[in-house]
């Protein structure tokens, strides 16, 4: 589904990713772990198509298409979802308006009929309920005045509504207390744990992995993957620390 080959990327002339390769197949959940500054968020942004991140070598294909050639919204329409570590506030634009426009823009690209207001609201309310988010919050401006945990939960509601093929979740566990962590973890399993879908979890700690069990764990250090293993690798990292394991 996603094939990253020898990816090099830099920001402001500074090399961050230095030859990263990774393949994710349908039905798989991969976790990328690593110390701060290893390039974890950069990987998410490069895959999401954030301007300012320059790919200097390598390739990324998504379902056989050249991902790097696509604009951020085209990637979204192709089925890729980026869950932000720091979800952005958009004053004056309600969650409902934002998400409905986004969803219908994606559907239009795929030649699907737009959802009516009623159909959309039903869908959004159901997702909010599943993530135990007050439906009233759908009417509030996107992420404005939300706590850190509410923002992360809102990201999951968006993911549920958009129903992507592939999700990159960047530090989705940060800022969550233990109850919220369980709710978000259940959400990821419910929405994404399907034979035709896949997930790339970017995380610093293994605690989210107690709820979302990864099929593969990769250690990212200094811009490339230095080790790959199963779920047990996450525990090893937790015990031994990155310096031991990654070296």
């Amino acid at each position: 589904m996603l094939k990253i080959d020898n990816l090099h990327a830099e920001i402001d002339g500074k090399a961050i990713l230095k030859g990263l390769s990774l393949e994710v197949n349908p039905g798989e959940i991969h976790a990328i772990m690593g110390p701060n500054g290893a390039g974890k968020s950069t990987l998410g942004y490069v895959l999401g198509g954030r301007p300012g991140y320059e790919v200097t070598a390598g390739s990324v294909t998504f379902d056989g298409q050249d991902l790097l050639e696509m604009a951020a919204n085209e990637r979204a329409a192709a089925g890729l979802f980026l869950g932000f570590q720091y979800p952005v506030e958009i004053p004056g634009v309600s969650n409902v308006q934002f998400l409905r426009e986004a969803l219908n823009a994606q559907r239009a690209t795929r030649d699907e009929k737009p959802l009516s207001g009623g159909e959309f609201l039903k869908l959004a309310r159901a997702q909010a309920a599943a993530l135990e988010m007050d439906a009233e919050m759908l009417k509030r401006p996107v992420n404005v005045g939300f706590s850190g945990g509410e923002k992360k939960r809102n990201e999951m509601v968006q993911m549920g509504v958009i129903d992507p093929k592939f999700a990159i979740l960047d530090e989705t566990d940060s800022g969550l207390d233990i109850d919220a962590l369980r709710i978000v973890g259940d959400g990821i399993n419910r929405i994404m744990r399907k034979p035709d879908k896949a997930v790339l979890l970017i995380t610093h700690y293994q605690r989210l992995l107690d709820y979302v069990k990864p099929d593969f764990v990769h250690v990212l250090a200094d811009g490339r993957i230095t080790r790959t293993g199963g779920a047990e690798l996450a525990h090893e990292l937790e015990r031994e620390g990155y310096t031991q394991v990654a070296a």
Binding site: R50, A72, N73, A76, F84, V88, E101
Partner: peptide, 27 residues
């Protein structure tokens, strides 16, 4: 740029993203 990228990563093209943010600003 964060707002633009966020909106685009949810599927809006650049025009729609700018229009949405400006409408929010003027709401």
């Amino acid at each position: 740029e964060d707002q633009l990228f966020y909106a685009m990563s949810r599927g809006l093209d650049q025009e729609a993203a700018v229009a949405l943010i400006v409408n929010g600003f003027a709401r």
